[in-house]
């Protein structure tokens, strides 16, 4: 995804009541065949561009230059061997592309850049939700407002600071930058989930003599797993798919897949055999994560926010 922070308004979508749920089942009986047909056709149109590039990534280089990907179906029926893994092999391991190395970078960047902001935000969200200190509301509004400030406005001074301290070109500024940029949304989202935990649970723990640290670990964390999962997926997709931060803050030793693939699109724009394979190497991990954890992702989305 891109360098965006979301516009967020809490709770636009109330959870469906059981009555609505029943009505929906009744409506299922009223589905129209026309609507079904249109829905499926649009869904297919939406998928054709991706499918076309996927098919292309498995075709021999010469075929890609000579004919469109749609011709493979005719060829396959004619019984000609038309698919190959050579494109992936050369995209991953050829010295000119060497995407395997950038794949490692993507992974190394993403893990800390997801873990650190979630931890920091969990603690802050707990304080905003359950510790009654002076100036809390004002601070929270300030953090909330920071959500859609364009990160472009921070990049040059941050980079200067990194250069001055001598850490530029390493992984550290990338981890740090992603962590800082993620905080406003993370705090807001986790705060909303924390607020929904019944105060009786917290009170009970307090009566038992638990301090805030104990309450945080033994009451909050176990109940927040779905919320943490929801935000972790946002942040994972955002960091893995990010181009701007990696491009500006990183160096040749840290560039992730997005930077390399975007570069290839510029310098080797006609080499569709490596470009198509490269694109799918960059896409496949977020796609798997997304498909496996879609439920949490949608829940986080409906809790009132998204990282576009």
């Amino acid at each position: 995804m891109s360098t965006t922070q979301p516009a967020v308004t809490p709770r636009v979508v109330p959870p469906p009541s059981t009555v609505n749920e029943r009505a929906r089942k009744a409506k299922k009986a009223l589905t129209s065949p026309w609507a079904s047909a249109i829905a499926v056709i649009i869904a297919i149109i939406w998928t054709v561009p991706t499918f076309g590039l996927l098919v292309t990534s498995f075709r021999p280089e010469l075929d890609i230059r000579r004919s469109g990907w749609w011709t493979v179906f005719g060829d396959a029926i004619a019984g000609e061997g038309v698919f190959t893994l050579a494109n992936y092999e050369s995209a991953l391991f050829d010295s000119s592309t060497n995407l395997i190395q950038f794949f490692v970078n993507s992974f190394v960047i993403t893990l800390p850049a997801v873990f650190i902001p979630i931890t920091v935000a969990l603690l802050a969200a707990y304080a905003f939700a359950w510790i009654d200190f002076k100036g809390r509301d004002l601070l929270f509004v300030a953090v909330f407002a920071l959500q859609i400030v364009p990160i472009q406005i921070t990049l040059i001074p941050l980079l200067t600071a990194y250069v001055d301290t001598g850490v530029n070109g390493t992984f550290w500024p990338i981890w740090l930058s992603h962590s800082m940029f993620a905080l406003p949304l993370a705090i807001f989202l986790l705060h909303n989930f924390m607020k929904d935990i019944p105060s009786s649970l917290v009170e009970a723990a307090r009566v038992d003599g638990a301090g805030h640290v104990k309450i945080f670990f033994s009451v909050m964390l176990p109940l927040l797993t779905p919320a943490i999962a929801a935000f972790a997926i946002f942040q994972f997709l955002w960091v893995w798919n990010d181009l701007l931060v990696a491009l500006v803050m990183g160096g040749t030793q840290t560039f992730p897949l997005t930077v390399r693939v975007a570069e290839m699109a510029g310098s080797r724009g006609g080499d569709w055999h490596v470009l198509s394979a490269g694109a799918f190497i960059a896409i496949v991990v977020p796609l798997i994560v997304f498909l496996a954890l879609q439920r949490y992702f949608v829940r986080g989305l409906l809790a009132g926010s998204v990282k576009g």
Binding site: M1, P49, T50, N241, L243, A265, L275, L287, F290
Partner: peptide
């Protein structure tokens, strides 16, 4: 939504 804008652009 899961595809990076870079990937989508190439597609």
């Amino acid at each position: 939504m899961a595809i990076s804008m870079v990937g989508a652009s190439i597609i």
